[in-house]
Write a protein that binds this DNA or RNA. Structure first.
Length: 827
RNA sequence: GGGCAUGUGGUGGAAUGGUAGACACGCUAGUCUUAGGAACUAGUGCUAACGCGUGGGAGUUCGAGUCUCUUCAUGCCCACCA
């Protein structure tokens, strides 16, 4: 065995052998229990970045660990390959998006293979291929038939740069999530999925996910945004028969209303405006329309509004108050109208201050009454000025006040969600065409299932501006109506790529099926995903959509489970010098260079070593170097001892010298510690520190031996075999090469994981810690298995302790078995 | 403004309520080398020392990095959602 470590040669060699022998193929049928380990599949942008390396290494180590522990592991990979960058590249370089995407996939596949990942490539899924998007389209049709996909005219988020609409989830601070362009509101007829039908169950079932982090769950819960309250209807004084309904979560403050606000886009606003106020209201509304989302959402912006001239009547007490329009009321939430209670709501307070509107106190803190002149009182308290409800606690009043409104016919209980329906149309080329046609006679008609897929046309002009390139195709647009056979036009919108990624993990269970998206038995066998690993940036978008899809497909009886991902690990970002790696900052590290200079095993080891997976990881060149040196150290340890190592040596049933016994104990402790660290939240950073501890221990042991006896060789063999096996999920190539150099003929990756002996996984002696008043004052080496009294005596007889306790009154003595004695004295 | 995280040496980070700083990076000496950015050995929280030390302040406990309250700072997510 060569004493020098040449990762590049070793890695290429084994990658080839593994591929040729089909080492990572996953059979559908196996006696073993299943385990589905999944990384979020990448967008084929061109090259892997370190975030990918981290993500896939984490999942790969999990997959290999589970495989060694007796599971039939499904560990697939695929490509989220529809999307705008391909189209932009096409526009820039004149390349076909398909060619551009294919080339990227080819290159990135090569990189993934160089990383030594244990994927079953037979199950590869590529969302832009017709054999995949056919089924995305098919699923759309099933949702359409079930009434979960619909088209409607709506104010949508429009990004001019990308010339397409965006889902609410894709608008960040009023800007486009992709290009940072300013998002405007436009009225367009668009396709939506009815995710709001599932709002309640999507919220409630978060409780079924103990394997998800609370941060992700609260983010989803906040996004769904459930609130409970009431709708009250207010009669308009000037107009017979017209009512303005409002949604409120504070029905207890209903006696404190002093005005009412409707959104500028409110449907009845023109009717509610008097002739004198018409001009001012029109101006205000025109201005609101022009404002971008960013300006409008700005918190710092001072609230503005204008009166409409009309009034409403409070049905609870007959009071009259004016109607205003102001853009702090949102047309798309609740009813688009708000009852304003300046005394008990900070926004209403600010507005009332500005326009000198009155305020009326109806909730009081009995300990600290306030007239609310200086600020709104928004905490709980006792009702005042509220007729029969005076003296009630406001939390109790909420219910009875709504009950009164229900009984008298002007109100109802109402649960409201902030979640909106999912807008899935995109006016872009590189996506799955929405499979419907428009017929003059029959209207919207779904494409016949047997005619799927609706293929993307090739005869398109990518240089067009301001509209989708797909509309330039001559072959695509005209078709016949599947219903009446008459002439019809195809839908030119394509689907949001998040549709494609909402079900890809199901396709892995039956990737080659050309009869259906997946076989029901196979999807039920492999899913849900046992461990999903990916970035926190998908906490809302992808993960919420996927949960919705799973529930909808269950209702369509295509599968039998209701949550797609049992356990979720959200990995932290990869940083360099404390900042996120990005091309614009110029602080990226190219994985290819790392593979070339140090090898994949070093990259894998390092990316797991410094931080726990959920935390951000700071890339350092010195750290890479350190990992490379460590692998060299391991290699040298094995190589210099190759002649002394017998893979078949057994320590069972033998007794050993003290120092050999100690090395055996160290190995058992390492097996136990590493197994527990992986099982417990995948703490790979401590796993790797235990590799180092074990390696150091073997070197130490060896440095005390000038010559090895047969017993020594047996113990050394035991330790080295354990070290290699424990390291095999991480340093996949090095351990395989060493394993074979030591004479094995089968793969180390087919060896079972190691078991430890609880009696050996601890030190033979213990350190007795002696404290006085909780402070450590002495440490004494003692045998294990002392009685509590013996421990106490040893502690009290220690010279250091005697010195401290002489002449002092001992109040009590605490003894923790096998650990410590704490002597409490009076000071 | 709301929610969720996170605060431990020069740095990344370890610590079932029981020896704080495992394991590394870095640094300082030294050995071996023509040389070393290789390898190995020793040291490395602060303090001259008594001692002091897990962002600050309180509390529970025989004992707190860990539990409770409070406060500050940083990061992320949401944000005029009535």
């Amino acid at each position: 065995m060569k004493e020098s470590y040449f990762p590049q040669q070793i890695e290429k060699k084994w990658q080839k052998i593994w591929e040729e022998t089909g080492a990572f193929k996953t059979p559908d049928n196996s006696e073993k229990p299943k385990y589905f380990a999944l990384s979020m599949f990448p967008y084929p942008s061109g090259k892997l970045h370190m975030g990918h390396v981290r993500n896939y290494t984490i999942t790969d180590v999990i997959a290999r660990f589970k495989k060694a522990n007796g599971y039939n592991v499904l560990h697939p990979m695929g490509w989220d390959s529809f999307g705008l960058p391909a189209e932009n590249a096409a526009m820039k370089h004149g390349a076909d998006p398909e060619t551009w995407t294919d080339e990227n996939i080819k290159y990135m596949t090569k990189q993934l293979k160089m990383l030594g990942l244990s994927y079953d490539w037979d199950r590869e899924v590529t969302t832009c291929k017709p054999d995949y998007y056919k089924w995305t389209q098919w699923l759309f049709l099933q949702l359409y038939k079930k009434g979960l996909a619909y088209k409607k005219e709506a104010a949508v988020n429009w990004c001019d740069n990308c010339a397409t609409v965006l889902a609410n989830e894709q608008v960040i601070d009023g800007k486009c999530w992709r290009c940072d362009g300013i998002v405007e509101k436009k009225y367009l007829s668009q396709w939506f999925l009815k995710i709001t039908d599932y709002a309640e169950v999507l919220l409630k079932d978060l409780d079924k996910l103990p394997g998800w982090g609370d941060n992700v769950k609260t983010m989803q819960a906040n996004w769904i945004g459930k609130s409970q309250g009431a709708i009250f209807k207010f009669k308009v004084k000037e107009i017979e028969g017209l009512e303005v309904p409002v949604y409120t979560t504070r029905p207890d403050t209903v006696y404190g209303i002093t005005y009412l606000v409707v959104a500028p886009e409110y449907k009845d606003i023109e009717k509610l405006t008097t002739a004198e106020n018409k001009k001012a209201v029109e101006e205000y509304r025109a201005n609101a329309r022009k404002m971008s989302e960013i300006e409008r959402l700005s918190t710092e912006r001072i609230k503005t509004g204008v009166p409409l001239g009309t009034h409403c009547i409070n049905p609870f007490n007959g009071e009259e108050f004016p109607l205003w329009t102001a853009d702090y009321a949102l047309v798309e939430y609740g009813t688009g109208a708000v009852m304003a209670v300046p005394a008990h709501d900070t926004r209403d307070y600010d507005f009332a201050q500005k326009y000198k509107l009155p305020l009326k106190v109806v909730i009081q803190n009995p300990e600290k009454p306030s007239d609310c002149k200086d600020e709104a009182y928004t905490d709980s308290g006792i009702l005042v000025n509220s007729n029969e409800f005076n003296g009630m606690k406001n939390e109790e009043a909420k219910k009875v006040i709504i009950e009164k409104s229900v009984k008298e016919g002007f109100g109802e209980f109402k649960t409201q969600y902030r979640l909106r329906d999912w807008l899935i149309s995109r006016q872009r080329y590189w996506g799955a065409p929405i499979p419907v046609v428009y017929c003059d006679k029959c209207g919207i008609v779904p494409v016949d299932e047997k005619d799927l897929p609706v293929r993307l046309p090739k005869d398109v002009d990518f240089s067009v501006v301001g509209k989708s390139p797909i509309t330039t195709s001559k072959s695509f647009l005209d078709t016949v109506c599947p219903h009446c056979g008459g002439p019809a036009k195809r839908e030119t919108d394509t689907m949001d790529t998040f549709m494609c990624s909402s079900w890809y993990y199901m396709r892995y269970s039956d990737a080659k099926n050309n009869k259906k998206p997946f076989d029901r038995d196979l999807v039920n066998k492999w899913l849900p995903v046992d461990q999903y690993v990916g970035g926190i940036e998908h906490a809302i978008l992808h993960l919420l959509y996927s949960r919705f899809f799973t529930k909808a497909l269950k209702d369509l009886e295509l599968l039998d489970f209701d949550e797609p991902f049992k356990n979720l690990l959200t990995q932290g970002m990869v940083l360099k010098d404390g900042a996120k790696m990005s091309k614009s900052k110029g602080n990226t590290v190219d994985p290819d260079e790392i593979f070339e200079n140090y090898g994949a095993d070093t990259a894998r080891l390092f990316i797991l070593s410094d931080s726990p997976p959920a935390r951000d990881f700071d890339w350092s060149d010195a750290g890479v170097e350190g990992c490379y040196k460590f692998l060299n150290r391991v290699w040298r340890l094995v190589a210099t001892n190759a002649e002394n190592i017998d893979l078949n040596a057994s320590i069972n049933g033998k007794t050993f010298s003290k120092e050999n016994d100690n090395l055996i104990r160290t190995v058992h402790m390492a097996i136990k510690g590493i197994t527990n660290d992986i099982s417990n939240d995948f703490q790979f950073n401590t796993v790797i520190s235990k590799y180092r501890e074990l390696t150091n221990a073997i070197y130490d042991w060896q440095s005390k031996k000038s010559q090895l006896s047969d017993e020594d060789k047996t113990v050394l063999s035991f330790a080295i075999v354990a070290l290699l096996k424990l390291m095999s999920p991480v340093a996949v190539h090095l351990t395989e090469e060493a394993w074979h150099e030591l004479g094995a003929s089968t793969s180390i990756h087919d060896e079972p994981w190691l078991a430890w002996d609880e009696n050996l996984a601890k030190l033979s002696s213990i350190t007795l810690v002696v404290q006085v008043n909780g402070k450590v004052k002495d440490k004494i080496e003692v045998d294990e298995g002392l009685s509590q009294d013996e421990m106490k005596n040893i502690a009290l007889n220690s010279p250091k302790i005697k010195e401290l306790t002489t002449g002092k009154e001992i109040v009590k003595i605490i003894v923790v078995p096998k650990k410590l004695v704490n002597i409490v004295i009076k000071p």
